[in-house]
Design a protein around this nucleic acid. Structure first.
Lengths: 171, 171
DNA sequence: CGACTTTACTTTAAGCTTCAAATATCGGCT
DNA sequence: AGCCGATATTTGAAGCTTAAAGTAAAGTCG
């Protein structure tokens, strides 16, 4: 189904590709779809396993992961930037994590608008257990890639990130 | 901060990497986070632009994109598999698209359980306009990657996809 | 045929997510 | 001091998403 518009009955060689008409961006489009598929598959699998083994949602895990890296806690705005989600989103997520005793809010000492969020002992303990399993799952899912390919993929994605940032800047 | 535990003060060469302790999967973890960041950035930008220029949500666009590829329409199950979202999700999404006149439901002629969803003329026309802009946006975002790098990334992601599928099969 | 399993879809509850609007505070500037 | 634009957060409305449970129709097989 993928190559429907690119002569599926003929092999696609370098010549064919080089003969692309200007303004044809099907390659990039396919690349994006493949990138999206990979991410969706991995994310879905992680979500399922987190629920199955720890009865936790992915957003809760993600938020705790950010907090685990910041011993002194972070503000909602920091979290929002790092997690790339909206501010309003975090309000509710943090509310629920406070309710379940995994994170704590305290007022910022320097800015009366802000509050600092941090993991409770319970939250940290539970997160550490989940994180260990999580790392194993990720390793499993990338097990089919040699160390060398992992490195190359990493590098290409770094370039992608820069390219996207560039394009988004002057939207 | 990245290789903090892998002797940051010394250059990291092939030997150092090869000397990783077994059970250390930090490289894969970082790769996953980078992959996720790329996807999130692109997805967010596409979402913003679709809303800004066409007042449409990404899920609606995605669903119409699937239908545009299937002249005769698809069942909800087909859509569910292709879009990798749950069945229940689609029920509501299709409901809203029917309400706005972009897609139509009809009963399957061969299976009384199933219904076939297809684009209306309105839906197709609007989708085509959006799709053209969308392709341009994607091209923009990947503009920083040479054709060669696009090809290599595509190939590495194909391997990733296979690796993930393998790992998910016997979850 | 009739029991059983699978498949197609809907419904419900809970949670996630965004955008936009509102509130409060901050920081710089005059 | 006082104004003003930026920042931190919350709220509300709408829509998205999943998991789980339920209904109905197909397919399978003895």
């Amino acid at each position: 189904m993928d190559h429907a518009l690119v002569s599926p009955e003929h092999p696609i060689d370098a010549e064919t590709i080089a003969a692309e008409r200007p303004g044809d961006h099907r390659a990039e489009l396919r690349l994006w779809l493949r990138l999206l598929t990979c991410t969706t598959m991995i994310e879905g699998e992680i979500r399922r396993r987190l629920r199955r083994d720890f009865d936790v949602t992915l957003p809760r895990f993600d938020l705790m992961a950010q907090l685990d890296k910041a011993a002194d806690g972070m503000t909602l705005s920091d979290l929002s930037k790092r997690m790339m989600v909206s501010n309003g989103n975090l309000t509710g997520l943090v509310d629920r994590l406070v309710a379940s005793g995994h994170v704590a809010r305290r007022a910022s000492e320097t800015d009366r608008r802000a509050q600092v969020i941090s993991l409770t002992d319970l939250g940290r303990a539970e997160f550490r257990a989940m994180a260990e399993a999580h790392e194993g799952w990720i390793a499993e899912m990338f097990a089919g890639l040699s160390r060398d390919r992992v490195e190359r993929l990493m590098e290409l994605l770094a370039r992608t990130k820069n390219s996207v940032r560039e394009a988004s800047r002057d939207a």
